[in-house]
């Protein structure tokens, strides 16, 4: 077994105490630990202090605020809880679905939504042991080295944003709330991510994610999350597409009033598919809509060799899975 290096653990009880604890240089926040602890074992991080959220009573609720028109999901809510939550399932089926296909049941029982939106970027040349990276020739930009093995000559890390929930949350127009020594801020989740695999969010070192705020649908909607990977469990996504179509009436033959498609596992930032204007006004069950969306996805999304399975294949699959996801929504009525 890989050994865990030594670190101390702090267990603050309030958000303020968490923020205070995060001011220790190198301190890292841990909730479920399903991402952080393997990375520590791989010596990708060696934090002197882990600040555990296990005793913080806040951050554990899902609240529907009808007056404000939003659902607030605490950062400590587990992925299992989200996938099983009646309100989430009813109002945001694509989110319930994404949370329910992360890794395996054991990991979903531990992993939290806050952790999942802050999941570190992943790369076949990074998420390996320190010995392995030494054998590779001394790691890469994201670990101990200075080169990129995915894009030879590249200076920017392109490790893949591999969260299942993030593309869905962005497609739903979610905001992220962060609290730090500078106070509380709320920003669209879409703006939270950066195209830099080494530091792929705008989170400051002493900030913690407190909640995700998801606007309640104001009208009829269909949404879906398409994930392809080799195995039926455990694996990170290799193809990851979130889709949301707001409709003028509550049936799939109704015209689409808004379309949002967000793709993960490309580079370090989730990609919003653009130029979907021409599908607005088409019926969701119009086959030309599915084809058009799939084409946009295919044109705009270029997977890299940062995760297993050949990038050209994954690019082709983006088109297939985007189209099928729409077919699934249409078939479900």
């Amino acid at each position: 077994m890989l050994r865990m290096p030594r670190f101390s653990v702090q267990t603050p009880r309030t958000i303020d105490e968490v923020v205070q604890a995060l001011r220790t240089p190198g301190a890292r926040l841990v909730a479920g630990g399903t991402d952080l602890l393997p990375n520590i074992k791989h010596r990708l991080e060696q934090p002197p202090v882990l600040v555990s959220l296990s005793r913080v009573r806040e951050l554990g609720d899902v609240v529907v605020d009808e007056a404000a028109g939003v659902m607030r999901i605490g950062a400590r809510v587990t992925l299992t809880a989200i996938s099983e939550h009646a309100q989430v399932r009813e109002r945001f089926p694509s989110l319930a679905r994404a949370a329910g296909v992360v890794a395996s049941p054991l990991i979903r029982n531990m992993g939290t939504l806050g952790g999942n939106v802050n999941l570190d970027t992943r790369c076949r040349y990074v998420n390996q042991t320190a010995f392995w990276r030494e054998a590779l020739g001394g790691g890469c930009i994201k670990s101990e080295g200075s080169v990129c093995h995915v894009v030879p000559g590249g200076r920017n890390c392109v490790a893949a944003m591999s969260s299942d929930c993030v593309p869905v949350l962005i497609s739903l127009g979610a905001s992220i709330v962060l609290v730090g020594s500078q106070g509380r801020r709320e920003l669209p989740l879409e703006d939270y991510y950066l195209a830099d695999g080494v530091r792929h969010t705008t989170r400051l070192d002493d900030e913690l994610t407190t909640e995700l705020v998801v606007p309640l649908p104001r009208g009829p909607r269909r949404s879906h999350y398409a994930k392809w990977t080799v195995r039926g469990s455990i694996d990170f996504p290799l193809v990851s597409v979130a889709l949301r179509f707001d409709l003028e009436q509550d049936h799939v033959s109704a015209p689409v009033s808004e379309a949002h498609v967000v793709v993960g596992v490309l580079g370090s930032k989730p990609r919003r598919v653009t130029r979907l204007d021409d599908v607005v006004g088409k019926a969701l069950d119009d086959p030309s809509l599915a084809t058009a969306v799939a084409e946009r996805v295919h044109q705009q999304c270029k997977p890299l060799e940062n995760v297993p399975y050949e990038a050209p294949y994954r690019r082709t699959m983006l088109r297939v899975h985007a189209r099928r996801a729409i077919e699934v929504m249409v078939a479900a009525g």
Partner: peptide, 17 residues
Amino acid sequence: HRGVHPGPSLLDYRIPT
């Protein structure tokens, strides 16, 4: 890549679940 095993772990060496 210098003859490294591309994924010497049970996450990357996939056996069926």
